[in-house]
Design a protein around this nucleic acid. Structure first.
Lengths: 153, 153
DNA sequence: TATAACCGTGGAGTGTGGTCCATGGTCAAG
DNA sequence: CTTGACCATGGACCACACTCCACGGTTATA
């Protein structure tokens, strides 16, 4: 068997690091469209090209960027329809970039909060306990007193 | 009714932007622990303090950062446990800080990748196509500075 | 030709994060 | 004391992204 040129599902799975179940799942969802070979009789075997290995990598990447499988499948459709131009691709990515940046900002706020809290704890609890609101989304500042109640600053 | 001091579930839901169903779900999962008031007979009404509104905000935030409800609940547990001694609390938070910074580094890598890819697409595909690996393959540890860039620790 | 290794199909099950709903108890206004 | 708004419980149901399994057909190897 010539490795890597026209694979059956198990080799494809192994090359992509997916399980055969996941590959079949992706095929059902339209994310991967293998050829149907001449082997297998009533239920012909699926033949995977090296291009599909690349596709699988793109799917994984997109997933790690927070796209759902449904969205990824839609991108694939567009791509095959020839509608996925560079401009369009840049637009899609800009949308996702916005989401990622939003997340990063929130995360930065949370990190600031946790840092402040650590400093506060190590300083023996001097002064007002840091409140999350101070760091995130401009929520009205307040402090939590020893009884766990919020006092307005 | 005095707004915001000791709320029943529907007001709490409204103030947090959650549905009452979701609030009950969170209570079942241990993310929110309201008091049980004296009203309601066999099935006493849950009483929500303003501090829990704050908690709900933290939950939402943590969730948007990709923490699961289980992790968030564990965070809350640790938080309550660590609140006893400052040293212990600081230790716990440092652990959380590590996780957050890891996430931040990952996120920064993705943002860098997406930015580069957009630039590449808009430049008409000149030069080498950006690879995710270039951005994400050194994300072991780092911190995000004010500009959202990753600095190596 | 026997037998193991592989294939596809269909359906059930998992965990996460909810949402909906029927039932029945409780509370407050009129 | 009725009526409507509210409450809690329990269970069904949903989407997502898998994962497992039984069944039966196919292929390659010995």
């Amino acid at each position: 068997m010539v490795k890597g040129l026209f694979m059956l599902i198990s080799e494809f799975a192994q090359q992509t690091g997916l399980s055969t179940d996941t590959v079949r799942f992706y095929v059902r969802k339209g994310l991967l469209s293998p050829e149907t070979g001449n082997k297998g009789g009533y239920n012909p075997y699926q033949i995977f090209s090296p291009a599909l290995v690349e596709t699988a990598r793109v799917i994984k990447l997109a997933q790690s960027l927070g796209f759902t499988l449904k969205e990824i499948a839609a991108f694939g459709e567009e791509y095959r329809a020839g509608a996925l131009t560079a401009t369009r691709g840049a637009d899609i990515l800009r949308g996702q970039l916005g989401k990622l940046e939003e997340k990063a900002a929130l995360l930065a706020g949370m990190i600031g909060y946790v840092r402040a809290k650590i400093a506060w704890l190590e300083g023996g609890g001097q002064g007002a306990e840091p409140t999350f609101g101070v760091f995130a989304c401009g929520v009205t500042a307040g402090v939590v007193d020893d009884a766990g109640k919020v006092r307005r600053a």
